[in-house]
C-alpha cells in the first residue's frame, strides 16, 4: 500500500435479470427452444430476425411470425480479436450480420472461424445449436461455415417460454477521491481524519472533494474523536440481497465530537429498542491486525455511559 495517490479497490455489479417477454418475443424464444427460428413479418412485407416487437415504420405491434431457415448469408462481419466475458466464444471469432434464408434483414450473431481470412461477405453459414435449449438467443451457440454436417435436429416441443434470465456482471476499478483516501488511510492508523472547508469552516468527516455548500475541496486536516452522539437512527428488520449484517440492527447517524456532519454506522452493545436520539457512543475498533483502509475497522459504536446529549446540541444536524 502506498501513501500517495488515491485508494483503489475492485467493485462488482452483478445481477441475473429476469425479463418477461410479451407475446412477440415469447413466440420467438419458444421457437428457439424448439430449435426453430422465427422471423417477424413487417408492414413493408419484409421478414426480420429477431422479430421486432414494434414495426420500425408503423410502430404497430408485430403479430405475424413465420418460420425461417437456420442457414443464411453473411452480409457484413467484424473480427473480434480479444473476446470479452460473456461473448459466444472465448477465443477470437467474428460477429456477423447474417441474412437467414427466408428473411430480408440480418441477424447479429457470432461466426466461429479460426481467422479473419476464413470468413467473407456472401459466405453461407448455418446455426450451431446448444445441446440443451432454454429459449434464449444463446440457444444458437454460434454460426459456422456451411458444410456437409448433419442437419438441424428439432428440439423438444416443450412449454412456451415467457421469460429469460439475463446475467449482467460487470467489474469496475473503484477509486476514492484524494480527500476520501486520506480519511481511509487515517483509519488504517486508527485515526478519524476530517477536513475543514476553507470557506464555511465546517469540518467534514470524511473529507470531501467538494464542500457541498461551497463547491471547493475541504483542506485543513482535523482529527476528530472516535466518540459522538447518535442524532437519529433506524432499526433495520428487513433482509435483502447482498446484505452483510444480520438483522435486526441499528443503523445510526453518529455526529463525532469535533465534526459538523454525522455519518452512518452500526450501534451494538445495547438492545435495539433502547437506542435513542442523543445517545452518547464510542467506536469499538476491530483488533488492530484486522485493520485496513476502511471504515469497517470500526466494528460498531457502543454506548459510552455518559448522559444523553441535549436535543439543542444536535438538532441542526437532523
Amino acid at each position: 500500500m502506498t501513501d500517495v495517490g488515491t485508494l483503489h479497490a475492485p467493485m462488482k455489479v452483478e445481477f441475473d435479470y429476469t425479463r418477461s417477454l410479451g407475446p412477440t418475443l415469447s413466440e420467438f424464444m419458444t421457437g428457439l427452444k424448439r430449435r426453430q427460428i422465427l422471423g417477424g413479418k413487417l408492414a413493408d412485407g419484409t421478414v426480420a430476425v429477431p422479430p421486432p416487437e414494434f414495426d420500425p415504420q408503423t410502430y404497430d405491434p408485430i403479430t405475424e411470425l413465420v418460420p425461417v431457415g437456420s442457414e443464411g448469408v453473411v452480409q457484413s462481419w467484424v473480427w473480434v480479436p480479444e473476446p470479452v466475458p460473456g461473448q459466444p466464444l472465448d477465443k477470437p471469432f467474428a460477429f456477423a450480420q447474417i441474412v437467414l434464408d427466408g428473411t430480408d434483414r440480418p441477424l447479429l450473431h457470432a461466426v466461429a472461424v479460426e481467422a479473419p481470412d476464413q470468413i467473407a461477405t456472401g459466405q453461407r453459414v448455418r446455426a450451431v445449436w446448444a445441446e440443451e435449449t432454454v429459449g434464449a438467443i444463446t440457444d444458437i451457440r454460434w454460426f459456422e461455415p456451411e458444410g456437409d454436417g448433419p442437419a438441424t435436429v428439432p428440439g423438444p416441443e416443450g412449454e412456451a417460454v415467457n421469460g429469460i434470465i439475463a446475467p449482467v456482471n460487470l467489474s469496475y476499478d473503484y477509486a476514492a477521491s484524494p480527500e476520501e483516501s486520506k480519511f481511509f488511510r487515517g483509519l488504517a492508523d486508527g485515526k478519524l481524519i476530517g477536513q475543514r472547508c476553507p470557506v464555511c469552516e465546517k469540518v467534514y468527516v470524511p473529507p470531501r472533494g467538494a464542500c457541498p455548500v461551497d463547491g471547493v475541496p475541504t483542506t485543513d486536516e482535523v482529527e476528530v474523536a472516535d466518540r459522538g452522539t447518535v442524532t437519529t437512527f433506524c432499526i433495520v428488520n428487513v433482509p435483502f440481497t447482498g446484505q452483510q449484517i444480520p438483522i435486526p440492527y441499528v443503523s445510526a447517524y453518529v455526529l463525532l465530537d469535533g465534526a459538523d456532519i454525522a455519518f452512518l454506522h452500526l450501534i451494538l452493545g445495547i438492545d435495539a429498542a433502547d437506542v435513542r436520539m442523543g445517545l452518547r457512543v464510542k467506536a469499538v475498533w476491530k483488533p488492530r491486525d484486522e485493520w485496513g483502509t476502511t471504515i469497517a475497522n470500526i466494528s460498531h459504536f457502543e454506548p459510552t455511559g455518559e448522559p444523553d446529549a441535549d436535543f439543542e446540541t444536535y438538532k441542526v444536524h437532523l
Binding site: 435479470y17 425479463r19 417477454l21 418475443l25 420467438f28 424464444m29 429477431p50 452480409q75 457484413s76 462481419w77 467484424v78 473480427w79 473480434v80 470479452v84 466475458p85 460473456g86 461473448q87 459466444p88 460477429f95 456477423a96 450480420q97 447479429l108 450473431h109 457470432a110 461477405t121 434464449a136 438467443i137 444463446t138 429469460i164 439475463a166
Partner: peptide
C-alpha cells in the same frame, strides 16, 4: 436486452460491422 446484449455485442464490433458495410 433480449436478443443482442446476451451475446455481449461490444461497441467496437458493432462499429466494425458498420465500417465493413460501407467499405464493401
Amino acid at each position: 436486452p433480449y436478443t443482442v446484449t446476451p451475446l455481449w455485442a461490444d461497441a467496437v464490433s458493432v462499429a466494425g460491422l458498420q465500417a465493413r458495410a460501407g467499405l464493401e
